[in-house]
Design a protein around this nucleic acid. Structure first.
Lengths: 191, 191
DNA sequence: TGGCATACAGACAGACCTGTCTACATTCCT
DNA sequence: AGGAATGTAGACAGGTCTGTCTGTATGCCA
């Protein structure tokens, strides 16, 4: 059963991703979802409230599917750390790839401590935490540090694939990740 | 001598960086710069034309100052490759840090082959080319590949410092860069 | 000094925006 | 069967947006 709020959120996510946030009016969102204007303001306080809910929904879906894709691609923890970048590469090839919707939101909402920006920060923090759990499973001596370095590579690949239009960004990031992971795990043996 | 167009571009750059593009109207830009509306439409074809010119101007300034800051910080080519990330760290600490204005523009202008997006891609291509020249000077056996990996680290640091609000993004990127550079230059010795 | 280019000041049109309101239809529960 | 809850449809207000137009002032050059 799909409720009205769900239908609106689903379409809003897609349209926000394709065209940005400020550039689309609520009338378009409502028409596309087939929802009355009053329903928007009943379920969400404002347009910003809808944006926030759409981002949260997106984040939840992302956490589930991203982890599943990575874990389907490799079973060994160390291989999973690198499979992350293969999953990214697949994503970048999609026709509807428009960069990271959370980074895009950060670009459009300047107020640093707004709820929307907080949702962006939480999404990014989750990715680092996920990488940390993989790094720990791989036996890294300092999982948080390795995770922080890999997180930079992940967001860098996204940013360059989108902004610079570099099709090989995921491959470059993967190479750097291989070196970084090898170095971090070699330190374990030395310790 | 500052012309009217220069004055408008200068203020527009600052305001676009602080508040985004779609969210600010031309009236604000004109008032802040003390310029008449007709002057905008005489010197630039449209608001998008002003955005494009502001980005180009910003890009030119960036190329000059970024290279100068890196080269003032270290004289050895290999040290310069890492000094890049120290310069980034300083930038992230600024109160007016709002991420990369070019990535922000890519977020707000979805049309992938628009002049604005082309300016963004050119800016990002320049950074990679600059890193390639540093990598070559450092004696890397494969400068383009090393440059691509470092470029990912640079944009990843920017993205995470802004989007995730991670103050240590530059330091994480620097550590990964050290490993990447060491590995690339060690390959040279082996060859 | 007269003429021309440049810029300012501000009104204006037409479109679009968010958010509120009213009136009507449907469904579900008791 | 009757009433509450939910959703639709669309008008509406008040504001803001880009882009155009008119009229005026200023400075430069011949």
């Amino acid at each position: 059963m799909t409720t009205v709020a769900d239908r609106l959120l689903s379409h809003a996510s897609t349209i926000f991703e394709a065209k940005g946030f400020n550039a689309v009016g609520i009338d378009l969102l409502l028409a596309e979802a087939g929802v009355a204007k009053m329903s928007l303001y009943k379920h969400f306080k404002s347009k910003d409230g809808l944006v926030l809910a759409a981002l949260r929904r997106r984040d939840q879906r992302f956490r589930e599917t991203f982890a599943a894709l990575v874990e389907a691609r490799a079973s060994e923890p160390r291989a999973r750390l690198l499979a992350v970048f293969d999953v990214l590469g697949r994503w970048f090839e999609r026709d509807d790839f428009r960069g990271c919707i959370f980074l895009n939101a950060a670009a459009e909402f300047p107020e640093a401590d707004s709820p929307i920006r907080r949702a962006v920060a939480e999404h990014k923090a989750w990715l680092r935490e996920y990488l940390r759990s993989l790094a720990q499973a791989a036996g890294a001596p300092d999982p948080p540090t390795l995770a922080a370095e890999l997180a930079v590579l992940v967001d860098g690949a996204i940013a360059r694939a989108h902004g610079a239009g570099e099709a090989d960004a995921a491959a470059s990031a993967r190479r750097a990740a291989e070196t970084t992971v090898r170095s971090a795990l070699a330190a374990e043996i030395a310790a």
